[in-house]
């Protein structure tokens, strides 16, 4: 109980500090903070799949990009208002995940890694080659920031206002995912990650659990993708690329897979790293590669876990 209270106080403090920061920072820095929150939602969504259920996906950009594209197409080509275009993107990603996992769940770990990669790459190639719909390599520019209608007192056109919009979505998403992973359903997912055979023997319908987890994960990835698209008022095939998939995987590996807060920290570290490094060098891919090699060799449970265990809790065993 005590620990639970501490967690809620910590989460509240985190939100207040981040919210206050948005008030003081320059528009550029607020933009960075917004990115951190968006990637935070994205990383948490992948963590449901990778960290909690043990399904290593290397194609999570598929849902991120699909949500962004569908929402952009609905508002640009069909003229739908935000209140319809945004849900449309999420539904599209959920449906795509539902269809894809009818097939993908027939495969196990290594195959799943490859098949998710192939799936995202297929969507990428469609986005590049279906120029009439997607604008091809040029992407779709000019999507207006969310507008909730005349009854709502604020618009989100300015960077600061949009930041608070993203912060609100972030809080709602984090709460929803927290409830999800702390529910009996979430514990069953952890059971599947640890020992699928045993869960099956206990009478759990493992397939259905994985199926639902993948759809939930895809939906929140689409939420993140849409927020990212509205941040830049732009979507291009690069949002579906393997680089994006690899980056979000890196965020949860830097944080700690199987916790919700770890990936958010990972997303923050990632955005700062990208910002700092881009001012000194354009060898960004090289750095990502080195981080991957380092994590694989020294800290497969997560770089932050590694640092904590190494420097802050020398007597304790590994986190569990």
């Amino acid at each position: 109980m005590r620990k639970n209270h501490l967690g809620s106080v910590g989460a509240l403090a985190f939100i207040l500090i981040v919210g206050a920061l948005g008030n003081f920072l320059s528009p550029y820095d607020t933009g960075l903070l917004t990115q951190m929150l968006i990637y935070g939602v994205f990383a948490m969504s992948l963590d449901v799949l990778h960290g909690y259920t043990g399904m290593p996906s290397l194609g999570h950009a598929a849902y991120f990009g699909l949500g962004a594209y569908v929402s952009a197409i609905c508002s640009l080509k069909l003229g739908w208002p935000f209140g319809m275009a945004a849900p449309a993107g999420i539904v599209a990603a959920a449906v795509a995940a539902a269809l894809f996992h009818l097939l993908a769940l027939r495969t196990s770990k290594s195959y799943y890694l490859m098949i998710t990669l192939a799936f995202s790459q297929v969507l990428w190639s469609v986005a590049v080659s279906w120029t009439e719909l997607t604008g091809g390599d040029n992407g779709l520019p000019g999507v207006r920031r969310p507008n909730l209608g005349s009854w709502f007192p604020w618009t989100f056109a300015s960077t600061h206002n949009y930041f608070y919009f993203v912060l609100a979505i972030f809080v709602v998403s984090a709460l929803a995912l927290y409830v999800f992973v702390k529910s009996p359903f979430g514990y069953a997912l952890r059971g599947i990650r640890e020992n699928e055979m045993r869960m099956r023997a206990l009478g759990y319908n493992v397939w259905a659990y994985k199926y639902v987890a993948s759809i939930v994960s895809a939906s929140f990835a689409a939420v993140a993708g849409e927020m990212y698209m509205y941040l830049n008022s732009f979507v291009s095939p690069s949002s579906l690329s393997v680089t994006v998939s690899a980056q979000v995987l890196m965020m949860i590996l830097v944080g700690a897979a199987g916790t919700l807060f770890g990936p958010v920290l990972g997303a923050g570290v990632f955005v700062i790293l990208q910002y700092v490094l881009s001012t000194y060098t354009d060898r960004w891919l090289f750095v990502i590669g080195l981080i991957y090699v380092g994590i694989a060799l020294y800290a497969p449970q997560g770089a932050l876990v590694f640092i904590r265990d190494k420097f802050f809790a020398p007597k304790r065993g590994s986190a569990s």
């Binding site: 770990k109 891919l285 990502i288 590669g289 991957y292 090699v293």
Partner: peptide, 25 residues
């Protein structure tokens, strides 16, 4: 590199993913 991660499927895949980026760059 890989010999150090004998029989650890995920870390091996991550390591080679890192190499993919490094060599591409």
């Amino acid at each position: 590199l890989l010999a150090k991660l004998y029989k650890q499927e995920m870390p091996q895949a991550l390591l080679t993913l890192g190499l993919l980026f490094i060599i591409a760059d």
